[in-house]
Design a protein around this nucleic acid. Structure first.
Length: 419
RNA sequence: CGGGGUGUAGCGCAGCUUGGUAGCGCGGCUGGUUUGGGACCAGUAGGUCGUAGGUUCGAAUCCUAUCACCCCGACCA
Protein backbone atom coordinates (compact mmCIF):
# COMPACT_ATOMS: atom_id res chain seq x y z
CA UNK A 1 0.00 0.00 0.00
CA UNK A 2 1.04 3.55 -0.64
CA UNK A 3 -0.35 6.20 1.65
CA UNK A 4 -0.79 8.71 -1.16
CA UNK A 5 -3.59 6.58 -2.56
CA UNK A 6 -4.86 4.98 0.63
CA UNK A 7 -7.77 6.52 2.57
CA UNK A 8 -6.46 7.68 5.95
CA UNK A 9 -8.67 9.70 8.27
CA UNK A 10 -6.54 10.75 11.21
CA UNK A 11 -7.60 13.85 13.09
CA UNK A 12 -5.50 16.35 14.92
CA UNK A 13 -8.10 17.40 17.48
CA UNK A 14 -9.43 15.11 20.16
CA UNK A 15 -12.99 14.07 19.38
CA UNK A 16 -15.52 15.59 21.76
CA UNK A 17 -18.02 12.75 22.00
CA UNK A 18 -15.70 10.11 23.37
CA UNK A 19 -15.04 9.29 26.99
CA UNK A 20 -12.86 6.20 27.19
CA UNK A 21 -9.42 5.97 25.64
CA UNK A 22 -10.19 3.33 23.03
CA UNK A 23 -13.15 5.29 21.71
CA UNK A 24 -11.11 8.49 21.51
CA UNK A 25 -8.21 6.82 19.76
CA UNK A 26 -10.38 4.90 17.32
CA UNK A 27 -12.01 8.14 16.21
CA UNK A 28 -8.80 10.14 16.23
CA UNK A 29 -6.77 7.53 14.36
CA UNK A 30 -9.57 7.13 11.83
CA UNK A 31 -10.52 3.52 12.54
CA UNK A 32 -14.25 4.15 12.83
CA UNK A 33 -16.89 6.80 12.33
CA UNK A 34 -20.20 6.95 14.12
CA UNK A 35 -23.33 6.60 12.06
CA UNK A 36 -25.83 6.89 14.90
CA UNK A 37 -25.91 5.82 18.51
CA UNK A 38 -24.28 2.42 18.86
CA UNK A 39 -23.63 2.06 15.15
CA UNK A 40 -20.31 2.60 13.47
CA UNK A 41 -18.64 2.31 10.11
CA UNK A 42 -15.23 0.73 10.00
CA UNK A 43 -12.78 2.76 7.92
CA UNK A 44 -9.89 1.06 6.10
CA UNK A 45 -7.41 1.03 8.99
CA UNK A 46 -10.03 -0.13 11.47
CA UNK A 47 -11.32 -2.79 9.13
CA UNK A 48 -7.84 -4.19 8.60
CA UNK A 49 -7.55 -4.69 12.35
CA UNK A 50 -10.97 -6.28 12.51
CA UNK A 51 -10.06 -8.71 9.74
CA UNK A 52 -6.81 -9.63 11.48
CA UNK A 53 -8.80 -10.62 14.53
CA UNK A 54 -11.36 -12.48 12.45
CA UNK A 55 -8.68 -14.48 10.70
CA UNK A 56 -7.02 -15.59 13.92
CA UNK A 57 -10.42 -16.74 15.12
CA UNK A 58 -11.09 -18.53 11.81
CA UNK A 59 -7.77 -20.26 12.00
CA UNK A 60 -8.42 -21.60 15.51
CA UNK A 61 -12.00 -22.59 14.74
CA UNK A 62 -10.87 -24.44 11.65
CA UNK A 63 -8.15 -26.20 13.58
CA UNK A 64 -10.58 -27.77 16.06
CA UNK A 65 -12.86 -28.76 13.18
CA UNK A 66 -15.58 -26.15 13.35
CA UNK A 67 -16.80 -25.13 9.90
CA UNK A 68 -17.63 -21.60 8.82
CA UNK A 69 -21.14 -20.80 7.59
CA UNK A 70 -23.25 -17.66 7.18
CA UNK A 71 -26.86 -17.25 8.30
CA UNK A 72 -29.41 -14.51 7.55
CA UNK A 73 -29.50 -11.65 10.03
CA UNK A 74 -33.24 -11.04 9.63
CA UNK A 75 -34.93 -13.93 11.38
CA UNK A 76 -38.59 -15.00 11.26
CA UNK A 77 -40.57 -14.61 14.48
CA UNK A 78 -41.91 -18.17 14.18
CA UNK A 79 -38.56 -19.64 15.20
CA UNK A 80 -38.42 -17.37 18.23
CA UNK A 81 -41.98 -18.31 19.11
CA UNK A 82 -40.93 -21.95 19.07
CA UNK A 83 -38.00 -21.46 21.39
CA UNK A 84 -40.11 -19.25 23.60
CA UNK A 85 -37.73 -16.34 23.38
CA UNK A 86 -40.07 -14.12 21.32
CA UNK A 87 -41.81 -13.48 24.60
CA UNK A 88 -38.85 -13.51 26.95
CA UNK A 89 -35.99 -11.82 25.16
CA UNK A 90 -37.37 -8.36 25.78
CA UNK A 91 -36.83 -5.00 24.14
CA UNK A 92 -33.27 -5.78 23.24
CA UNK A 93 -34.71 -7.81 20.38
CA UNK A 94 -35.38 -5.40 17.54
CA UNK A 95 -38.59 -6.50 15.85
CA UNK A 96 -39.78 -5.49 12.41
CA UNK A 97 -42.46 -6.33 9.88
CA UNK A 98 -42.09 -6.98 6.18
CA UNK A 99 -44.49 -5.79 3.45
CA UNK A 100 -46.78 -8.75 4.11
CA UNK A 101 -46.88 -7.74 7.74
CA UNK A 102 -44.96 -10.82 8.79
CA UNK A 103 -42.93 -10.44 11.94
CA UNK A 104 -39.17 -10.67 12.05
CA UNK A 105 -36.32 -9.71 14.29
CA UNK A 106 -32.76 -8.64 13.71
CA UNK A 107 -30.62 -11.48 14.99
CA UNK A 108 -28.92 -10.79 18.32
CA UNK A 109 -27.83 -14.45 18.47
CA UNK A 110 -28.56 -17.47 16.30
CA UNK A 111 -29.59 -20.49 18.37
CA UNK A 112 -33.02 -20.61 16.74
CA UNK A 113 -31.81 -20.31 13.19
CA UNK A 114 -29.08 -22.90 13.46
CA UNK A 115 -31.26 -25.33 15.39
CA UNK A 116 -33.81 -25.04 12.60
CA UNK A 117 -31.06 -25.52 10.05
CA UNK A 118 -29.76 -28.67 11.70
CA UNK A 119 -33.13 -30.27 12.38
CA UNK A 120 -33.95 -30.01 8.69
CA UNK A 121 -30.74 -31.66 7.52
CA UNK A 122 -29.71 -34.07 10.24
CA UNK A 123 -30.52 -37.67 9.31
CA UNK A 124 -28.42 -39.84 11.54
CA UNK A 125 -26.49 -39.72 14.77
CA UNK A 126 -23.53 -40.79 12.67
CA UNK A 127 -23.34 -37.22 11.38
CA UNK A 128 -22.71 -35.99 14.90
CA UNK A 129 -21.06 -34.09 16.39
CA UNK A 130 -21.72 -31.02 14.23
CA UNK A 131 -19.68 -27.90 14.72
CA UNK A 132 -20.33 -24.70 12.80
CA UNK A 133 -19.61 -21.04 13.28
CA UNK A 134 -20.15 -17.74 11.57
CA UNK A 135 -18.69 -14.26 11.80
CA UNK A 136 -21.45 -11.78 11.20
CA UNK A 137 -23.24 -8.60 12.23
CA UNK A 138 -25.44 -8.93 15.29
CA UNK A 139 -27.98 -6.39 16.47
CA UNK A 140 -29.01 -5.86 20.06
CA UNK A 141 -31.17 -2.86 20.84
CA UNK A 142 -29.24 -1.92 23.97
CA UNK A 143 -30.99 0.45 26.35
CA UNK A 144 -27.90 2.57 26.41
CA UNK A 145 -25.15 1.91 23.92
CA UNK A 146 -21.89 3.47 25.06
CA UNK A 147 -18.13 3.71 24.82
CA UNK A 148 -17.98 3.51 21.03
CA UNK A 149 -17.88 -0.01 19.68
CA UNK A 150 -17.38 -1.38 23.19
CA UNK A 151 -21.12 -1.56 23.75
CA UNK A 152 -22.65 -1.04 20.35
CA UNK A 153 -26.10 -1.98 19.11
CA UNK A 154 -24.70 -3.31 15.88
CA UNK A 155 -21.48 -5.27 16.19
CA UNK A 156 -19.46 -8.12 14.77
CA UNK A 157 -19.60 -11.39 16.63
CA UNK A 158 -18.27 -14.86 15.99
CA UNK A 159 -20.82 -17.39 17.14
CA UNK A 160 -20.21 -21.12 17.02
CA UNK A 161 -22.72 -23.89 17.75
CA UNK A 162 -22.18 -27.54 18.50
CA UNK A 163 -24.59 -30.51 18.40
CA UNK A 164 -24.00 -33.81 20.22
CA UNK A 165 -25.61 -37.12 20.84
CA UNK A 166 -24.88 -36.99 24.57
CA UNK A 167 -23.54 -34.84 27.38
CA UNK A 168 -20.14 -36.48 27.39
CA UNK A 169 -19.56 -35.43 23.82
CA UNK A 170 -20.74 -31.90 24.62
CA UNK A 171 -18.31 -31.81 27.53
CA UNK A 172 -15.46 -32.81 25.25
CA UNK A 173 -16.29 -30.16 22.70
CA UNK A 174 -16.87 -27.52 25.32
CA UNK A 175 -13.28 -28.19 26.33
CA UNK A 176 -12.14 -28.03 22.70
CA UNK A 177 -13.67 -24.60 22.32
CA UNK A 178 -12.22 -23.52 25.63
CA UNK A 179 -8.77 -24.55 24.41
CA UNK A 180 -9.32 -22.79 21.10
CA UNK A 181 -10.37 -19.63 22.93
CA UNK A 182 -7.22 -19.71 25.02
CA UNK A 183 -5.20 -20.04 21.82
CA UNK A 184 -7.09 -17.17 20.23
CA UNK A 185 -6.53 -14.74 23.07
CA UNK A 186 -2.90 -15.74 23.38
CA UNK A 187 -2.39 -15.14 19.69
CA UNK A 188 -4.14 -11.78 20.01
CA UNK A 189 -1.44 -10.99 22.60
CA UNK A 190 -3.96 -9.72 25.13
CA UNK A 191 -3.91 -9.94 28.91
CA UNK A 192 -7.07 -11.93 29.60
CA UNK A 193 -8.68 -14.28 32.06
CA UNK A 194 -11.47 -16.85 32.04
CA UNK A 195 -14.20 -16.82 34.69
CA UNK A 196 -17.32 -18.72 35.65
CA UNK A 197 -20.33 -16.76 34.51
CA UNK A 198 -24.08 -16.34 34.39
CA UNK A 199 -25.62 -17.74 31.22
CA UNK A 200 -28.40 -15.12 31.22
CA UNK A 201 -30.63 -14.80 28.19
CA UNK A 202 -28.88 -17.51 26.22
CA UNK A 203 -29.53 -20.18 28.82
CA UNK A 204 -27.94 -23.50 29.67
CA UNK A 205 -26.25 -25.20 32.57
CA UNK A 206 -22.69 -23.93 32.49
CA UNK A 207 -20.93 -20.96 31.02
CA UNK A 208 -17.52 -19.34 31.04
CA UNK A 209 -16.56 -15.84 30.02
CA UNK A 210 -13.28 -14.61 28.66
CA UNK A 211 -12.32 -11.11 29.76
CA UNK A 212 -9.66 -8.74 28.62
CA UNK A 213 -8.43 -7.07 31.79
CA UNK A 214 -8.73 -3.30 31.68
CA UNK A 215 -9.93 -0.52 33.96
CA UNK A 216 -12.52 0.53 31.39
CA UNK A 217 -14.19 -2.88 31.69
CA UNK A 218 -17.82 -3.00 32.74
CA UNK A 219 -17.57 -6.33 34.55
CA UNK A 220 -16.32 -7.03 38.04
CA UNK A 221 -14.23 -10.18 38.28
CA UNK A 222 -13.24 -11.92 41.47
CA UNK A 223 -10.12 -14.05 41.22
CA UNK A 224 -8.96 -16.45 43.94
CA UNK A 225 -5.41 -17.42 44.90
CA UNK A 226 -5.42 -20.29 42.40
CA UNK A 227 -6.24 -17.87 39.60
CA UNK A 228 -9.78 -19.16 39.22
CA UNK A 229 -12.16 -16.34 38.50
CA UNK A 230 -15.86 -15.67 38.93
CA UNK A 231 -17.99 -12.92 37.52
CA UNK A 232 -19.37 -10.82 40.39
CA UNK A 233 -22.85 -11.43 38.92
CA UNK A 234 -22.80 -15.03 40.09
CA UNK A 235 -20.38 -14.48 42.97
CA UNK A 236 -23.21 -12.57 44.69
CA UNK A 237 -25.21 -15.76 44.95
CA UNK A 238 -22.20 -17.95 45.69
CA UNK A 239 -21.03 -15.83 48.63
CA UNK A 240 -24.47 -14.59 49.68
CA UNK A 241 -23.66 -10.92 49.59
CA UNK A 242 -23.95 -7.87 47.37
CA UNK A 243 -21.02 -6.14 48.99
CA UNK A 244 -18.09 -6.66 46.68
CA UNK A 245 -15.53 -5.26 49.13
CA UNK A 246 -16.77 -7.62 51.83
CA UNK A 247 -16.63 -10.67 49.56
CA UNK A 248 -13.13 -9.78 48.40
CA UNK A 249 -11.81 -9.31 51.94
CA UNK A 250 -13.49 -12.29 53.55
CA UNK A 251 -12.45 -14.74 50.84
CA UNK A 252 -9.01 -13.41 50.02
CA UNK A 253 -9.90 -12.60 46.41
CA UNK A 254 -8.53 -10.14 43.89
CA UNK A 255 -10.96 -7.75 42.24
CA UNK A 256 -10.32 -6.86 38.61
CA UNK A 257 -12.25 -5.05 35.90
CA UNK A 258 -12.84 -7.00 32.72
CA UNK A 259 -14.14 -6.45 29.21
CA UNK A 260 -16.20 -9.46 28.18
CA UNK A 261 -14.86 -10.57 24.82
CA UNK A 262 -15.89 -14.22 24.81
CA UNK A 263 -18.63 -16.33 26.33
CA UNK A 264 -19.12 -20.06 25.94
CA UNK A 265 -22.22 -21.97 27.04
CA UNK A 266 -23.30 -25.53 27.63
CA UNK A 267 -26.85 -25.17 26.40
CA UNK A 268 -27.87 -28.77 26.99
CA UNK A 269 -31.24 -29.51 25.39
CA UNK A 270 -32.86 -26.09 25.87
CA UNK A 271 -33.26 -25.43 22.14
CA UNK A 272 -33.28 -28.98 20.87
CA UNK A 273 -36.21 -29.72 23.19
CA UNK A 274 -38.26 -26.59 22.51
CA UNK A 275 -37.65 -26.78 18.79
CA UNK A 276 -37.85 -30.53 18.40
CA UNK A 277 -34.35 -31.53 17.40
CA UNK A 278 -33.81 -35.20 18.26
CA UNK A 279 -32.30 -38.30 16.75
CA UNK A 280 -32.04 -42.02 17.40
CA UNK A 281 -28.72 -43.21 18.76
CA UNK A 282 -27.00 -46.56 18.12
CA UNK A 283 -29.30 -48.25 20.63
CA UNK A 284 -32.38 -46.77 18.92
CA UNK A 285 -33.05 -44.49 21.85
CA UNK A 286 -34.37 -41.14 20.62
CA UNK A 287 -32.74 -38.21 22.40
CA UNK A 288 -32.83 -34.46 22.15
CA UNK A 289 -29.46 -33.28 21.04
CA UNK A 290 -27.05 -31.68 23.45
CA UNK A 291 -25.94 -28.27 22.29
CA UNK A 292 -23.26 -25.75 23.05
CA UNK A 293 -22.70 -22.22 21.80
CA UNK A 294 -19.57 -20.17 21.79
CA UNK A 295 -19.39 -16.41 21.17
CA UNK A 296 -16.60 -13.93 20.65
CA UNK A 297 -17.16 -10.17 20.39
CA UNK A 298 -14.91 -9.52 17.44
CA UNK A 299 -15.43 -5.78 17.11
CA UNK A 300 -15.28 -5.36 20.87
CA UNK A 301 -11.81 -6.91 20.84
CA UNK A 302 -10.57 -4.02 18.70
CA UNK A 303 -11.52 -1.61 21.48
CA UNK A 304 -10.35 -3.94 24.24
CA UNK A 305 -6.93 -4.30 22.64
CA UNK A 306 -6.54 -0.54 22.61
CA UNK A 307 -7.59 -0.22 26.25
CA UNK A 308 -4.61 -2.42 27.02
CA UNK A 309 -2.10 -0.98 24.56
CA UNK A 310 -1.69 2.77 24.20
CA UNK A 311 0.43 5.68 25.30
CA UNK A 312 0.22 9.48 25.06
CA UNK A 313 0.98 9.30 21.34
CA UNK A 314 -1.78 6.86 20.47
CA UNK A 315 -2.39 3.19 19.90
CA UNK A 316 0.36 0.54 20.19
CA UNK A 317 -0.96 -2.52 18.39
CA UNK A 318 0.09 -6.02 19.33
CA UNK A 319 1.97 -7.29 16.30
CA UNK A 320 -0.71 -9.91 15.62
CA UNK A 321 -3.48 -7.41 14.87
CA UNK A 322 -1.73 -4.26 13.69
CA UNK A 323 -3.24 -2.86 10.47
CA UNK A 324 0.26 -2.84 8.99
CA UNK A 325 3.47 -4.34 10.31
CA UNK A 326 5.64 -1.60 8.97
CA UNK A 327 5.28 2.04 7.96
CA UNK A 328 8.03 3.35 5.71
CA UNK A 329 8.20 7.14 5.63
CA UNK A 330 9.96 8.96 2.86
CA UNK A 331 11.02 12.56 3.37
CA UNK A 332 10.16 14.82 0.44
CA UNK A 333 10.09 11.98 -2.04
CA UNK A 334 8.04 14.15 -4.35
CA UNK A 335 11.01 16.52 -4.66
CA UNK A 336 13.89 14.10 -4.49
CA UNK A 337 14.18 11.38 -7.08
CA UNK A 338 16.85 9.37 -5.25
CA UNK A 339 14.74 9.31 -2.08
CA UNK A 340 11.72 8.20 -4.05
CA UNK A 341 13.48 5.46 -5.95
CA UNK A 342 15.27 4.13 -2.88
CA UNK A 343 12.02 4.13 -0.91
CA UNK A 344 10.37 2.22 -3.70
CA UNK A 345 13.20 -0.24 -3.76
CA UNK A 346 12.86 -0.94 -0.04
CA UNK A 347 9.10 -1.06 -0.42
CA UNK A 348 9.30 -3.69 -3.15
CA UNK A 349 11.88 -5.69 -1.21
CA UNK A 350 9.61 -5.75 1.83
CA UNK A 351 6.63 -6.82 -0.25
CA UNK A 352 8.66 -9.62 -1.77
CA UNK A 353 9.44 -10.73 1.76
CA UNK A 354 5.74 -10.68 2.66
CA UNK A 355 6.06 -7.77 5.06
CA UNK A 356 2.79 -5.90 5.43
CA UNK A 357 4.12 -2.50 4.57
CA UNK A 358 2.63 0.90 3.86
CA UNK A 359 4.86 3.43 2.16
CA UNK A 360 4.06 6.95 3.27
CA UNK A 361 4.72 8.84 0.07
CA UNK A 362 2.35 11.65 0.89
CA UNK A 363 3.42 15.21 0.34
CA UNK A 364 3.59 16.01 4.04
CA UNK A 365 6.21 16.87 6.60
CA UNK A 366 8.13 14.23 8.52
CA UNK A 367 6.62 15.24 11.84
CA UNK A 368 3.10 14.92 10.49
CA UNK A 369 3.76 11.48 9.11
CA UNK A 370 5.41 10.23 12.29
CA UNK A 371 2.54 11.54 14.40
CA UNK A 372 0.06 9.78 12.14
CA UNK A 373 1.72 6.36 12.29
CA UNK A 374 2.36 6.61 15.99
CA UNK A 375 -1.30 7.51 16.49
CA UNK A 376 -2.36 4.57 14.33
CA UNK A 377 -0.06 2.33 16.33
CA UNK A 378 1.99 0.58 13.66
CA UNK A 379 4.75 -1.30 15.52
CA UNK A 380 7.65 -0.68 13.13
CA UNK A 381 8.53 2.64 11.52
CA UNK A 382 11.42 3.56 9.27
CA UNK A 383 12.48 6.80 7.61
CA UNK A 384 14.19 7.41 4.29
CA UNK A 385 15.56 10.86 3.44
CA UNK A 386 18.53 12.15 1.48
CA UNK A 387 21.00 10.77 4.00
CA UNK A 388 19.54 7.26 3.90
CA UNK A 389 19.16 7.19 0.13
CA UNK A 390 22.81 8.13 -0.28
CA UNK A 391 24.03 5.40 2.06
CA UNK A 392 21.54 2.65 1.22
CA UNK A 393 20.19 2.51 4.75
CA UNK A 394 16.99 3.29 6.61
CA UNK A 395 16.50 4.93 9.99
CA UNK A 396 14.47 2.50 12.03
CA UNK A 397 12.49 2.90 15.21
CA UNK A 398 9.94 0.83 17.04
CA UNK A 399 6.61 2.33 17.97
CA UNK A 400 7.11 1.28 21.56
CA UNK A 401 10.59 2.81 21.94
CA UNK A 402 12.33 6.07 21.17
CA UNK A 403 15.82 5.03 20.03
CA UNK A 404 16.58 5.16 16.31
CA UNK A 405 19.08 3.01 14.46
CA UNK A 406 20.52 2.84 10.98
CA UNK A 407 19.93 -0.43 9.17
CA UNK A 408 20.52 -1.96 5.78
CA UNK A 409 17.64 -3.60 3.97
CA UNK A 410 18.75 -7.06 5.08
CA UNK A 411 19.14 -5.99 8.68
CA UNK A 412 15.72 -4.38 8.52
CA UNK A 413 14.04 -7.60 7.43
CA UNK A 414 15.52 -9.63 10.25
CA UNK A 415 14.68 -6.83 12.68
CA UNK A 416 11.05 -6.99 11.65
CA UNK A 417 10.96 -10.77 11.84
CA UNK A 418 12.40 -10.92 15.33
CA UNK A 419 10.18 -8.14 16.62
C1' C B 1 -37.42 5.60 31.44
C1' G B 2 -35.20 9.13 35.61
C1' G B 3 -31.10 12.69 36.29
C1' G B 4 -27.19 15.79 34.05
C1' G B 5 -25.00 17.92 29.61
C1' U B 6 -24.23 19.30 24.39
C1' G B 7 -25.97 20.69 19.28
C1' U B 8 -22.69 27.23 15.71
C1' A B 9 -17.56 25.65 8.98
C1' G B 10 -14.48 19.02 7.94
C1' C B 11 -12.49 18.73 13.53
C1' G B 12 -12.18 21.41 18.34
C1' C B 13 -14.52 25.71 20.30
C1' A B 14 -16.14 31.15 21.52
C1' G B 15 -20.42 34.25 20.94
C1' C B 16 -26.18 33.49 24.10
C1' U B 17 -26.56 36.35 30.58
C1' U B 18 -27.71 42.11 28.33
C1' G B 19 -31.48 40.48 20.69
C1' G B 20 -28.76 44.42 15.85
C1' U B 21 -27.77 39.61 10.97
C1' A B 22 -21.48 35.05 12.98
C1' G B 23 -16.03 34.57 14.85
C1' C B 24 -11.31 31.94 16.63
C1' G B 25 -7.75 27.70 16.42
C1' C B 26 -6.73 23.45 13.55
C1' G B 27 -7.70 21.43 8.78
C1' G B 28 -8.73 22.57 3.07
C1' C B 29 -7.36 25.30 -1.52
C1' U B 30 -3.78 28.99 -4.31
C1' G B 31 1.00 31.38 -4.52
C1' G B 32 5.71 32.12 -2.33
C1' U B 33 9.51 31.03 1.32
C1' U B 34 10.85 26.72 4.04
C1' U B 35 12.02 21.55 4.92
C1' G B 36 15.25 15.38 9.49
C1' G B 37 9.45 15.49 14.97
C1' G B 38 2.67 18.56 13.94
C1' A B 39 6.73 25.27 9.44
C1' C B 40 6.02 30.64 8.02
C1' C B 41 3.82 34.68 5.14
C1' A B 42 -0.02 36.35 1.97
C1' G B 43 -4.53 35.28 -0.17
C1' U B 44 -9.01 32.23 -0.55
C1' A B 45 -13.21 28.88 -0.10
C1' G B 46 -16.55 26.84 3.38
C1' G B 47 -22.00 27.82 8.10
C1' U B 48 -30.43 28.14 6.22
C1' C B 49 -26.16 28.69 14.14
C1' G B 50 -30.01 20.59 14.95
C1' U B 51 -35.36 21.24 13.32
C1' A B 52 -40.24 23.58 13.61
C1' G B 53 -43.16 27.27 15.49
C1' G B 54 -43.66 31.80 18.45
C1' U B 55 -42.28 36.90 20.49
C1' U B 56 -39.96 41.18 18.01
C1' C B 57 -38.85 46.33 13.35
C1' G B 58 -34.98 42.62 13.99
C1' A B 59 -33.41 36.00 16.92
C1' A B 60 -27.35 31.90 17.16
C1' U B 61 -29.10 34.89 21.44
C1' C B 62 -35.69 35.22 24.45
C1' C B 63 -40.18 31.52 24.68
C1' U B 64 -42.52 26.70 23.28
C1' A B 65 -42.28 22.09 21.06
C1' U B 66 -39.43 18.47 18.88
C1' C B 67 -35.13 15.64 17.19
C1' A B 68 -30.15 13.99 17.67
C1' C B 69 -25.77 12.94 20.44
C1' C B 70 -22.78 12.33 25.14
C1' C B 71 -22.40 11.06 30.54
C1' C B 72 -24.57 8.78 35.32
C1' G B 73 -28.39 5.36 36.80
C1' A B 74 -31.91 1.56 35.94
C1' C B 75 -31.39 -2.53 32.15
C1' C B 76 -28.76 -6.09 29.29
C1' A B 77 -24.50 -9.40 28.11
Amino acid sequence: MKASSYPLFTQKNDPSDAEIISHKLMLKAGLIRQQSTGQYSFLPIGYRVLKKIENIIRDEMDSIGSAEILMPSVQPSELWQESGRWGTYGLELLRLNDRHDRKYCLGPTFEEVITDLVRKDLNSYKQLPLNMYQISTKFRDEIRPRFGIMRAREFIMKDAYSFHINEKCLDNWYQNYKDAYNNIFKRLQLDYTMVDADSGNIGGSKSNEFHVLAEAGEDDLLIDEKGIGTNFEIAKAKYGSNDIEKIVNENNLIHKKGIEVGHIFKLGDKYSKSMGLSIADADLNVNHLQMGCYGIGVSRIVAAAIEQNYDEKGIIWPKSISPFQFALIEIDGHKNESVRSFSNEIYQTMKRNSVEIILDDRNAKLGNKLHDWELMGVPNIAIIGKKEAQNNIVTFKKRSGSEKESLSADQLISKLDTD
